[in-house]
């Protein structure tokens, strides 16, 4: 991805108090209805992203010897620099890159094929009742007017910060995080995480990657489709010029 001046979200689970203001603010801005939930014996709710829930707090309860350690992780679209969803999407403009480097969507252009669900390394895209994509779009419609994304605006502790990507990476490093999750992966994520422990504890893959079959399709099968067709057409022309059509008269002599 080539965007100078790329923006990002820096998410710091250590600062999160699990208030879920981000979930609510996102719903309010995007006019997404609340959904009825059930008590599953945890304060984490809902249990997963839905078409009406673009971001949420994942509660990780880690029993330790003396007590329980709680990790609150904001889960959402990562706005990947190399985005699997965009790669696999067959409809131009359904998923697009904003000038801040985020991956936004246009439901009118989405054809509802749901392939983005498969191309995403983070299991993010959901689809609504019409089969159209639904996910975090980094509040492109707020950013355009100089506003903060709703989640970052609401977060009372600074656990979700929006800003220049480079500056946020530096900020996290200054705060003592040697590794910032997503700094380099997939050409850099647009949601970077200050993880104290191994990513998998927070529910993220150590090395996230676009599914191999999608990469193979993109690098080999796609070009082969036009090289193959062009090759056959060219070979036919050459054959026609060099050998010409089968002539019945010539065969006749053998009769």
């Amino acid at each position: 991805m080539t965007t100078t001046n790329r923006k990002a979200l820096l998410i710091s689970p250590e600062l999160c108090i699990g208030c879920r203001g981000c979930q609510t603010a996102c719903k309010a801005w995007n006019q997404l209805p609340g959904t009825k939930t059930v008590n599953r014996g945890t304060v984490e709710n809902p249990p997963d992203l839905t078409p009406q829930l673009y971001n949420r707090i994942r509660y990780v309860e880690m029993p330790s010897e003396t007590s329980v350690r709680w990790l609150f992780v904001n889960q959402r679209c990562m706005h990947c620099g190399d985005a699997g969803c965009m790669k696999i999407c067959p409809a131009p403009g359904a998923l697009y890159r904003t000038k801040e480097g985020a991956v936004a969507f246009d439901k009118d252009k989405c054809i509802g094929c749901k392939l983005c669900v498969e191309g995403c390394p983070f299991d993010v895209p959901r689809y609504d009742e019409k089969g159209k994509i639904a996910k975090c779009h980094l509040c492109f419609d707020r950013i355009a007017y100089g506003l903060l994304p709703a989640c970052a605006k609401t977060c009372p502790t600074g656990a979700i910060r929006y800003g220049e990507r480079d500056a946020l990476v530096e900020m996290a490093k200054k705060a003592g995080y040697q590794k910032v999750y997503g700094e380099m992966d997939l050409e850099g994520l647009g949601a970077i995480y200050a993880f104290r422990d191994a990513p998998k504890i927070y529910g993220y893959a150590e090395k996230p990657g676009i599914p191999e079959s999608v990469v193979f399709w993109h690098k080999v099968l796609k070009p082969l489709s036009y090289i193959g067709l062009g090759g056959v057409v060219a070979a036919s022309l050459i054959h026609y010029v060099a050998f010409g059509p089968k002539k019945d008269e010539e065969v006749k002599k053998d009769e």
């Binding site: 498969e118 079959s213 999608v214 399709w217 796609k222 489709s225 067709l229 056959v232 070979a235």
Partner: peptide
């Protein structure tokens, strides 16, 4: 789905070579 996506495209490539020939 991903397997189908892969197979769909492999057979597509085969067809756009074989059928014009």
């Amino acid at each position: 789905i991903l397997l189908s996506h892969l197979l769909h495209n492999i057979s597509f490539d085969l067809m756009v070579i074989a059928i014009p020939a």
